[in-house]
Deep mutational scan, measured.
Amino acid sequence: MIINNLKLIREKKKISQSELAALLESSRQTINGIEKNKYNPSLQLALKIAYYLNTPLEDIFQWQ
């Protein structure tokens, strides 16, 4: 199971779900699903999230 700190990191950087979704060329619903652990992002999307949040991938997503 993958757990994530996306919501915590996103809020700390003062970025809304909609703003992050626009940067990622994704939907706000996708970001919401990832944050609620209802959806696991593809590797490509996970890497883009890490890039746009300027945060190491392993700080956002962790195996448990």
Rank of each mutant, 00 (worst) to 15 (best):
S18T: 13
A21N: 02
T55G: 04
N32A: 15
L24D: 00
P41M: 05
K48W: 06
I31L: 07
A22D: 11
S42C: 06
L57T: 03
T30K: 10
L23C: 11
Q17P: 04
S18E: 13
A46H: 03
L8T: 15
S27C: 08
Y52M: 10
S26L: 15
E19S: 11
K14R: 12
P41Y: 03
Q44K: 13
S26V: 15
A50S: 10
S26A: 13
A50D: 01
I49D: 00
L57F: 06
S18A: 13
I3C: 13
N32G: 08
Q62T: 09
K13C: 14
K36V: 10
A21G: 05
L43E: 05
Y39E: 10
L53E: 00
D59N: 09
T55D: 01
M1P: 10
N32H: 11
W63Y: 06
Q64S: 14
L45V: 05
S18G: 12
L20T: 00
N4G: 04
A46F: 04
K12Y: 10
K14S: 10
L43A: 06
E25L: 12
F61E: 00
Q62Y: 07
L6E: 04
M1I: 11
S16C: 05
E58D: 13
E19Q: 14
I2Q: 07
R28G: 07
A50T: 03
L57H: 01
N5D: 03
A22K: 14
E19H: 12
R10W: 07
I34L: 06
L23Q: 09
Y39R: 10
K13I: 08
E35P: 02
S26Q: 12
I49V: 05
G33V: 07
I34C: 03
L6C: 09
L53A: 01
L24K: 00
L6T: 01
K48F: 05
Q29I: 10
E58L: 09
S42G: 09
Q29D: 14
Q62I: 10
Y51C: 12
K48E: 06
N37M: 07
G33T: 07
I9L: 09
P56R: 10
L24A: 12
I3M: 12
L45T: 05
N40Q: 15
E58Y: 12
R10V: 04
I3N: 06
D59V: 08
Y39D: 05
I60D: 00
L43K: 10
P41T: 07
Y39C: 14
L23T: 06
E25Q: 15
I2Y: 10
E25D: 14
N4S: 02
N40S: 15
Q17H: 03
A21K: 02
R10M: 07
L45S: 01
D59P: 03
E58T: 10
Q64M: 08
L57N: 01
K7W: 05
N4M: 08
L53D: 00
L53T: 02
G33C: 15
S18I: 11
I15Y: 08
L20F: 05
P56V: 06
L24P: 01
R10G: 03
L57P: 02
I9P: 01
N32K: 12
S27Q: 06
I2A: 08
L23Y: 13
L47M: 13
R28L: 14
L8I: 14
S26D: 08
S16G: 07
K7C: 10
T55K: 04
I60Q: 02
L6Y: 00
L24N: 00
S27A: 06
S42N: 08
Q44E: 14
K48M: 10
A21H: 03
E25K: 15
K13H: 11
M1D: 03
E58G: 13
Y52W: 11
S27I: 06
N32W: 08
S26F: 09
I9G: 01
L57V: 11
E11F: 07
W63K: 03
N32E: 15
S26G: 07
L53G: 01
L20P: 00
N54H: 10
I9S: 01
I9C: 09
M1H: 06
A21T: 03
L8A: 14
I34K: 00
I49K: 00
A46T: 04
L45W: 03
K38I: 14
T30S: 06
Q17C: 05
R10E: 03
L43R: 12
Y51T: 07
N32S: 14
L45N: 01
L47Y: 10
L43N: 05
F61S: 00
I60E: 00
L20I: 03
K48C: 09
E19F: 10
P56D: 08
A22I: 12
N4K: 00
K36R: 13
I3Y: 08
T30G: 03
Q44F: 10
N40L: 14
G33I: 08
S16V: 03
A46S: 05
I49M: 05
Q17N: 03
K48I: 05
N54P: 01
A22Y: 12
A50V: 04
Y39V: 14
I15Q: 02
K7R: 14
A21E: 02
N40M: 15
L23P: 00
I34W: 04
I49F: 02
N37W: 10
E58R: 11
N37D: 07
Y52H: 12
K14C: 11
I2P: 05
L43S: 05
W63V: 04
L23R: 09
K36A: 13
K12G: 11
A50N: 02
I9K: 02
N40D: 08
E35F: 05
Y51L: 09
R28T: 15
E25G: 15
Q44H: 12
I49C: 02
S27T: 14
L43P: 09
P56C: 07
I15M: 15
Q44T: 12
T55V: 12
R28I: 15
K13V: 08
M1W: 06
D59K: 11
A50Q: 03
L47T: 10
Y52P: 00
S27V: 05
L57A: 03
K12Q: 14
I3E: 07
L43T: 07
Q44P: 10
Y39Q: 10
S18V: 12
A46C: 09
K14A: 10
N37C: 12
S26H: 09
A21F: 02
L47S: 09
N40W: 13
G33E: 15
Q17S: 05
E11H: 08
I34T: 01
S18Q: 13
L43Q: 08
L6H: 01
Y51S: 07
A22H: 13
I9Y: 09
S16I: 06
K36W: 07
L20A: 00
N54V: 07
Y39L: 14
L57M: 09
A46N: 02
R28N: 07
A50K: 01
I2V: 12
N40T: 15
L20S: 02
E25I: 08
D59W: 08
K14I: 04
K13T: 06
L23G: 09
T30E: 10
I2W: 10
N37Y: 07
I31A: 01
K48D: 05
Q44V: 11
Q17R: 07
L47K: 13
F61L: 02
